[in-house]
Each structure stands twice: as structure tokens, then as C-alpha cells.
Write a protein that binds this DNA or RNA. Sequence first.
DNA 1: TTTTTATTGCGACTTATTTGCAATAATAAG
DNA 2: CTTATTATTGCAAATAAGTCGCAATAAAAA
Lengths: 125, 125
Amino acid sequence: MERRNTKTKEAVLEVLSKTGKAMSREAIENKIQTDINRATVYRVLNRFCDDGILHRVVADNGKQYFAICTNCEDKAMAGNHFHFRCLNCETIECLPIPVDFTPPSGYLVSGVNCVLSGTCKDCAA
Amino acid sequence: MERRNTKTKEAVLEVLSKTGKAMSREAIENKIQTDINRATVYRVLNRFCDDGILHRVVADNGKQYFAICTNCEDKAMAGNHFHFRCLNCETIECLPIPVDFTPPSGYLVSGVNCVLSGTCKDCAA
DNA sequence: TTTTTATTGCGACTTATTTGCAATAATAAG
DNA sequence: CTTATTATTGCAAATAAGTCGCAATAAAAA
Ligand SMILES: [Mn+2]
Ligand SMILES: [Mn+2]
Ligand SMILES: [Zn+2]
Ligand SMILES: [Zn+2]
């Protein structure tokens, strides 16, 4: 199932590239001029995640956020990293802090989802 | 607003005490013989969380899980700890592994929600 | 036994995400 | 350039988790 280039995909990727942060479907949609269907945006995001172009974060509000994986190449970001959700400005950022742990013997870890929440630098000032 | 003792509260606490794991509203309800209303169970759980009797974990499936705070007293469990969600048996346990990190300067962390997922010891065997 | 009001049940509601299906359009083929 | 193939989209409906208002119920105190 080869992928095709579409305006929607380009738009979504551009928004996520520019912000550098993790965004919700709604936030992404709002940043795009043209109207794109909700279901379509989700499908595009899910496909990007499948293809390893984006990574998904589930915050403690139960919502999904998507972030581009460019920063993930950084040594500090490699593998899994913490995320920070500002309860004030409602943004989520990828922190350059690796998640470090040693799973109990016998356990097989395939996924990591770590989200800190509080007040971000900007909002704290 | 003083709290009152009710069968529902007792039943919920007993189920959570016995399992020792973190459970979803649904799982808790299924373990209780008598039928209790969904909204009521959520209200009871939320109250327990407010009162510091339970703690809430939001897994990467977006669902909330509740665990009794007895183990939380353990030195290893004090403060925040990792949680593990088995994708096979769909259970969530509190791991005796503290979440360790140093937030970027300027950031104020008020909440921690860390969930590892994969295959648990029992299911891996 | 009566009073006070925390707690419950019920039904409706909200919000996030997914899914079926027919229409549309990107890309390959001729 | 035209046609064929099928990935992608839009729309509406469906799921699913969790919340809320309100009247009825039942702890706990008087
Ligand atoms: Mn990230
Ligand atoms: Mn726990
Ligand atoms: Zn902020
Ligand atoms: Zn398991």
C-alpha cells in the first residue's frame, strides 16, 4: 500500500514542523487554513505514526498529541523521552530528558509513555 | 462535607485492596456482585482520589485506572512510580520503580504520569 | 423518630476517536 | 494526453470513556 502525497499531509507536517511541539488533532486543524475533515486528520496522523514520521503521546487528560520525530534523532531525545504538559497554556513539549528505568525481571517493555505536567517556563515567568 | 460509609465504597475498596493492581472502572464493576451505577462508581473513585486513598493512572490507551495507595507508603513507591500495562492480560500494576528526572530550569512539575507497556511477567512465561 | 444532607440511580450529554461507504484525486500505465 | 488503479478524503454514524443535573434514597446526627 504505497503512500501518496496530498495537500493535507503536507499541511499537517508543516504545522508540526514549525511548532516543534506535540499537538492535538484540534490544534493542528486550527493552524491549517483550509478545512480538513476531522476523521481525515486522524487518519493522516495515524499513518504518519505507523510510518515513524510522528510519535504519539497520550497525556493524563486522556487525549492524544502528535509530534514530529526530527528532534528524536538527537542523542538526548533518542529512544524515549519525557513530555511536559503545561496546564496553563495547554501545550505539550518533548523534553530532552531520556526516560531511564530498569524493568523488573521477566517483564517485556515495548512502549513508554511518560508525561509530566505543571507550569511551563514561559507561563511560570 | 463529611464522608459517609456506604456499601459501594466498601465494595470498591475491597476489590482494589485484594487485587493490589490498578483497575479500570469497568474491571472494578465486574468484580462486584451487586449492580452499581457507572456514574456512581466514578464518583466514588474520584472522591477516593481526592481524599488520597487511591491514585489515578492514565494509560496510553487513554483510560483511567485506579489503585489503592497502601503500597505507595513503601519507600520504593513513595512519591511517583512507574506503572506497567500488560497488552496481553490488560492489567496495570504499580511498579516499585521511582520516576527520576530533573525538570528543565523554569519548569514547575506538579504531576507525573508514567506508564510502560508490554508483556508482564506472567504472560511472558 | 425526625431531620439533615451525602450518596445513589437514571438518563442525557460531552468529548475524543474510529469506521463504513461512496466520491475524489494521486500516480502509474498506455 | 487519456485511462485505469486504488490510496485518500468527506460525511455521517458509531464507539467509548467520563461527566452532570436532578429527584430519590439512606447514612449519621439530633
Ligand atoms: Mn516527544
Ligand atoms: Mn501506582
Ligand atoms: Zn505554558
Ligand atoms: Zn499480562
